[in-house]
Design a protein around this nucleic acid. Structure first.
Lengths: 344, 344
DNA sequence: CTTTAAAACGGGAACGATTGCGTAAATAAA
DNA sequence: TTTATTTACGCAATCGTTCCCGTTTTAAAG
């Protein structure tokens, strides 16, 4: 099928002008008479002229679009973040290309390659759980490809970063469990080397030590795929439930870990919070409707997307090389509901 | 910031060849000697050459990308559909630009304008609830801009369409409620003129009449924003609960209607299914964890995305004008859980 | 030893938009 | 009236790639 849109050439031909005159008229140049401008503008509006993005991209060496690299769209945190990203990007005249890694390192490399090879002017990334080597990102960044990290950041990369206060979120959530009377608190965590995992784990540990509760290594479970697979959560929970002293509460340090924990308890008919209490990270907007209603640590995903995009666009549009980097930390929000009700 | 990637010119200069030779070598033309090809290929791989999408787009009058127009990403049905769309698109060498309307007609028009003005080769659309006039779509389509409808289709548009068997889904769900002993069944529906609303409403009505249950107009509630706003669901439910004969079951004909119905019952402390049973459309993967576990009509969103994208790409790549259009209907899936348990 | 033809490559236009530079006409200044 | 200046436009190069035509070299055919 062919779909031919009107070009500057078409306008020029129709009006008996040169393309340069038309171009200048459209950009409201002082060199063009008011009369001609009106003529061109009227014609352009009538035939719905839009500049060809490919031509513009070729000429100006920029595409006015940015890329996003995230693990998956069908994750409430990320879809909310995307909304924040789009709101800023669209407002500033950029469009957005979203790519998913599904937590795969290989796909992350491929996506970065694709985005950097001139399809976008820069990108936002929240690295995949599988990613342990950041060369594919830092190499591009070193060469001048603008990258801003959010959520799951890369410590070694010297760029703008927008993160959630994972430490505080985990600390507050764990403290809440302790204050509610729970003592044997386990943690379901994502893979060790992930920045957010470390921070959340540290928050968890600090809350325990601040309350003079010893840390049992048995209570510390890592899930390599961040809870994406039910099986890994099942295995971790099975191990926890086989311990002599079972945990009486769990802090689930990721969205998928939280929901799969709930699924586990439902399947195994383990009463929450009677047998085991829980508070966990989640950005789902229906956690209040779960059984029981879920206590959560909620991340300001939309805001995160907004802030990160603003920083990225500033970086892209900056004339000189950026040398001072923002490191923005957004505050935690904790919502207490039935799943972590006071221990009887 | 500047980020310069290697071009054909660079390769030509480095290797002492002309751009045409390099171009041909990269495309494995018979006109180029095996020797030269290897030389070029090796260099290209080493310096990670990628063709400039803007230049290609300009030359070939195609961008190898497609657009999506949906109401919102943060809706499980659409995010799952996007996964299906991306899987096919990426496999066939296209990339995807997602735009959201947030159910606004104005934004839908703007998004279509943007996408059609040469940023993409075609688009997939599920129209917004607010959209009652389809000229902005059919005009472009008439001019040769490939469009494929999915989910919420446009009857008057003669193109490929991929829909869910809304009638059967609603019919089966309603029948299930009837067989479970419920007689006074209300429906929460989206705006009237939306194709999927009509079909679902018709399925609902047919199920009633097939079981000799009269239809009460009072039991028929429309929400203009498709349940996006809690207030509209609250208003509809308040009206239902004020009736002399309150409904003993509800069929919620949309994702947001379903969750906001649950929210209403939770807020008003209305027991499900004792006071009122419910089955509704939802693609959330945690409906089993809700309180009570939710009976749902689930749409094959991923599959829908896949199929629609295949059709769109065929249309785009077709040499001749397409005149025969597929009209694919995907089967319903009903998952019965506690929220519609047999009436006692 | 010519003629022909294949093989291997280069030149240059084109795609749509921008922009520095050149220039004709109109006006103002001398 | 001549010169200088402004106004209003056109020409042509450029971005990276492809592709239609040459052109040269080599080899085969006559």
């Amino acid at each position: 099928m062919k779909f031919e849109a009107v070009t500057i050439k078409d306008i020029a031909k129709a009006l008996g002008l040169s393309t340069s005159t038309v171009s200048r008229a459209l950009r409201d140049s002082y060199e063009i008479s008011e009369e001609t401008k009106q003529l061109v503008l009227k014609y352009a509006k009538e035939f719905n002229y839009r500049p060809n993005p490919s031509a513009l991209g070729l000429k100006e060496k920029r595409t006015r679009s940015i890329g996003i690299v995230i693990s998956e769209i069908a994750n409430s945190f990320f879809s909310q973040a995307i909304n924040g990203i789009e709101s800023v990007a669209n407002q500033r005249g950029y469009n957005v290309i979203i790519t998913q890694t599904l937590e795969s390192y290989e796909r992350e490399v491929a996506n970065m390659q694709f985005l950097s090879s001139r399809s976008v002017d820069g990108c936002l990334i929240s690295v995949s759980t599988e990613t342990n080597d950041f060369d594919h990102i830092s190499d591009l960044y070193q060469k001048g490809f603008p990258v801003v990290c959010f959520d799951r950041v890369i410590d070694s990369l010297d760029t703008h970063k927008v993160i959630f206060d994972n430490f505080m979120g985990a600390y507050n959530a764990t403290t809440h469990l302790i204050k509610s009377g729970y003592k044997n608190i386990a943690i379901l965590s994502s893979i060790e080397y992930l920045s957010i995992s470390k921070e959340r784990l540290n928050g968890f540990k600090k809350a325990l030590s601040d309350n003079d509760i010893p840390l049992h290594e048995d209570y510390l479970k890592h899930c390599a795929h961040g809870g994406m697979l039910y099986q890994e959560v099942e295995k971790a929970m099975d191990e926890l439930m086989k311990l002599k002293v079972k945990p009486d509460a769990v802090f689930t340090s990721g969205d998928k870990l939280t929901t799969n924990f709930m699924r586990y308890c439902k399947t195994k008919k383990i009463a929450i919070p009677e047998k085991i209490a829980v508070i966990g990270f989640s950005n789902l907007d229906i956690t209040e409707l779960m059984s029981p209603s879920l206590s959560v640590v909620k991340q300001p995903a939309f805001e995160m997307g907004r802030v990160a995009t603003d920083l990225l666009l500033n970086m892209i549009e900056s004339k000189r090389t950026v040398t001072e980097f923002e490191h923005i930390v957004l505050p935690p929000e904790i919502i207490v509901r039935d799943s972590s009700a006071r221990k009887k």
